[in-house]
Write a protein that binds this DNA or RNA. Sequence first.
DNA 1: CGGTAAATTCCAAGTCTTGCATGATTATCA
DNA 2: TGATAATCATGCAAGACTTGGAATTTACCG
Lengths: 175, 175
Amino acid sequence: MIAATQSNHPLATVSDPVPAVSAMNEARARIRLAGLRITKPRLAIIDALLRRHGPSSTEHIHQEMGARRCDMVTVYRCLAAFEQLGMVRRSYLHNGTCLYELTLGAAARHYHIVCKACGSPERVDYLPVKGIEQLLQDRGYTEVSHVVEFFGICPKCQPATARGVSVTVPADLRA
Amino acid sequence: MIAATQSNHPLATVSDPVPAVSAMNEARARIRLAGLRITKPRLAIIDALLRRHGPSSTEHIHQEMGARRCDMVTVYRCLAAFEQLGMVRRSYLHNGTCLYELTLGAAARHYHIVCKACGSPERVDYLPVKGIEQLLQDRGYTEVSHVVEFFGICPKCQPATARGVSVTVPADLRA
DNA sequence: CGGTAAATTCCAAGTCTTGCATGATTATCA
DNA sequence: TGATAATCATGCAAGACTTGGAATTTACCG
């Protein structure tokens, strides 16, 4: 699929949930447990995600890999694999682009509101979806999952968009 | 954006909300009211959506336009415009592809559960999201909207996927 | 250390998005 | 009502992102 047109969006760095070392060990364990192999690109991708502490674009991950950089195709495939393992969760941007976020530790499910102007995500703690999933299982569905995304114009971007000014993003925040 | 890789998914035809004629008139009025122009491609797209009575893929819409067919680019642009007017709502499939659905008349907001195997959507009536949107507005966000999608394996597809059989879709249901 | 199978890479195709020039629609005016 | 001008919409071409396949490389097990 062509997942979405990509504009690069700056990302807000959010709070730190788990010490990086144990998180990395947990990641290795989960990969191994699933019968997958621990490879340099995979470790580098997890490392990049850990350093960001929040949703990252594929591009950002790729750049963040530095010397251990691998093919873009590998990034996509690894993230897809991680997602199936439940190690990574996707957020969808308003334009269809995706961001990826590690879900290690006992991190509770949370959602994001993404600014339609600058693309920065912010956490939304909110949970009343579990009941619906149960209801759907009662309907006969299995492997039930869901996607919830909120979109809006964040306070910072409001004067700008109101004046019709295009919001430009500092280059160092991109990807 | 590259919205998503596209696999074509069959679509369930759902119930009929509004008489087609008045719906078409309402659509024309809303386009005109927004200061946009009424063109042949736009009318053909709305017509295709009306005939489907449910979420449609861009491909399906394009094929359904028949003699009045226009460029695919136009379909994308028109749907994007309609979405901004609130005349059309997007559903996201599990693979990132989108389906578009008309929201005319007094049609209440509803959601979908999409089968990860065969792609057919089914309605989910469910509403407790309004409170969150209010909360986000109190946080300073404007133009708040949201996306909610549920995914799972529908009852019909379960024996098939359990046996590892790939689910093939009749050609006449495609696009 | 060698063998097996998975993972990565490169190449290619497919889909969606954006820029620019052309064509169509709407409003204005006679 | 009919013609003209302004502006929006469309079509085409180019560009970007994502996915699939085949061959090579790498990780893991004995």
